[in-house]
Amino acid sequence: MRLIPNRAWAATLLFTAFALLPLIAVWLDDIYLIVIATRILAYAIAALALDLILGYGGMVSFGHAAYLGIGAYSVAILSRAGITDLGLHLLAAICAAAVFALVTGAISLRTRGIYFIMITLAFAQMAYFFFVSLSAYGGDDGVTLAARSTVFGQPLLESDTALYYTGLALLVGLYLLAVAITRSRFGRVLTGTRENPVRMQAIGFSPFRYQLTAFVISGCMASVAGVMLANQTSFVSPAFMDWHRSGELVVMVVFGGIGNLLGAIAGATIALLLEEWLAILTEHWQILFGLILVLVVLYSRDGLTGFFRRRL
């Protein structure tokens, strides 16, 4: 509670830095910087969404990349049908994600612990295979988008900078939404359930409804990241929901400190920059990344989660 003014400051600082970044990119004459930064924004949205249920709800979902894919394919499928408006793309992504999260969440949340982790992973894999078998959209190979989403019928997002600021606006909006949710009545029930589900039942709450609602909200938020990512790469494929990507999202949340929404954004930034940097060093950067991950988990006291755990 005492941290809230600090958090507001930290958020302002972080988002200001993000807002100034294109200027720096222009000054350095390095347009690739904006491309990376847009990717970071998209993953930050997804990590934020995951943190809402992982950090605040105690639900370790290992299948959140599915929502990236659902968001991305919403763009691809609607664009193919001649609907190019960004707002409609977002709407479709959110609706599809809500349905998927509602069905898979209702089943997954009947279980706990290891089961929950494995089942969310399995359902994400199901989504993966679903899109692999969509031969009309390239199957395994995916599909290249003819153009980015339009805004008010105009191809405004064709400019990388405009896309970047759109992503930033979405991130800030979703961050504020997530902060509001965690501080609301609903958020209290969600966190309380993470702390002690039996206690919450003993005061009259049925955890399932709240957890499922949070799961759906999180899925919808993550699908927004998918819409962003599809626009950034102008390309959509099942690789968006590869289970490695689900794992990377969990890593991002934990790197930033679970149960700390701003941390999720920072974690996405750290993880992606680390990837970029390691990839410069060696083409086999995954070995180094994995090594860092294993070492940090093993040798930080109380493990990574304890190490990074912040007060709420």
Partner: peptide, 11 residues
Amino acid sequence: GSSFRFFAPVS
């Protein structure tokens, strides 16, 4: 009252 309220700070 309902706890499906998402915006107003509960504190």
